[in-house]
């Protein structure tokens, strides 16, 4: 089993998802089931194959260097759970 409970906790923290203590074992099982399902990929010969980087081959278009947006602070904070003077408010972040 590649994923043990310690890994589940580490991954959950990386993903910033709180886990209840009783979820951990169950989640480890599920993740292992999914990893077992994808295990057969290891059998594929991928020597010299380029990983896909763009689904449709095309040239990336670029935008002109023109200011087209901004001055919509009301809209930017319209859905914010906590805001003051157009700032987003979060619990104090210790540097």
């Amino acid at each position: 089993m590649p994923v043990d409970q310690a890994i589940v906790r580490r991954i959950a923290h990386l993903a910033r998802i709180e886990l209840a203590a009783d979820e951990v074992a169950h989640l480890a099982c599920e993740l292992n089931a999914i990893l077992a399902f994808v295990e057969e990929l290891g059998a594929v010969d991928v020597e010299g194959v380029e990983p896909m980087t763009s689904v449709m081959p095309m040239r990336m278009k670029e935008r002109a260097d023109v200011v087209t947006e901004g001055n919509i602070a009301d809209a930017i904070v319209a859905n914010a759970p906590a805001t003051e003077d157009h700032y987003f408010i979060v619990p104090k972040v210790v540097e």
Binding site: E84, I89, P91, V93
Partner: peptide
């Protein structure tokens, strides 16, 4: 993030 506006909160400007 501005940390000096409040004792308990940080203010975020993007």
């Amino acid at each position: 993030s501005l940390h000096d506006q409040s004792a308990t909160e940080s203010f975020v400007d993007l």
